[in-house]
């Protein structure tokens, strides 16, 4: 039996049968990988810093931990899939973007508040700017995923 993947209507019909929309196909898998890397990076980094030397830069370490939690939630949402997870991930990506832009500007405006770097310092320069590029890419991907599940984009 031949499956006409190219036809949007066929995809739509199949979509209705599926209980949960997949978010990790195609470019989504790359997003999950990069988010996974950021989870490991941010969580392990803040865990080490908070447990060994929290007094040195409490603000920076707390922000790194928050970043790690946000990344973790987005990764989980992407892997889980479905419309609710997609919306939740979209909200978190927006929060992440606000976070990285806000903290990035904050670290530049008031370096004295940050004796040590956070994941989001200087807009994520220490992480090849992935922290600032990732939410933008993810928002595009998640918005496109809606187009696929509803009417053809």
């Amino acid at each position: 039996m031949t499956v006409t993947d190219d036809e949007p209507r066929a995809g739509q019909a199949r979509q209705q049968q599926q209980p949960r929309q997949k978010l990790i196909t195609g470019p989504g898998i790359l997003l999950v990988w990069l988010y996974g890397v950021m989870v490991v990076g941010a969580v392990s980094r803040s865990a080490v810093q908070i447990s060994t030397d929290f007094g040195k830069a409490p603000l920076a370490y707390t922000l790194s931990a928050i970043a790690g939690v946000v990344y973790g939630f987005i990764t989980y949402s992407l892997v889980r899939g479905g419309e609710t997870a997609r919306k939740a991930a979209l909200v978190c990506c927006a929060a992440e973007l606000v976070g990285v832009l806000g903290v990035g500007a904050w670290t530049l405006a008031e370096p004295s508040a940050f004796p040590d770097a956070t994941v989001w310092s200087d807009f994520g320069m220490g992480y090849l700017f992935i922290p600032v590029l990732l939410p933008v890419t993810a928002v595009f991907w998640l918005r496109r995923a809606r187009g696929q599940s509803g009417e053809p984009a």
Binding site: G26, P27, W33
Partner: peptide
């Protein structure tokens, strides 16, 4: 982390048999 990095990306590319799986390994 450096030991686990490439195998993790490799496993993900097994689940995604398209160009995006390859790109994931490249990112790894």
């Amino acid at each position: 982390g450096s030991f686990a990095c490439v195998p993790a990306a490799g496993f993900m590319s097994l689940g995604e048999r398209t160009r995006w799986g390859s790109l994931t390994v490249a990112a790894g």
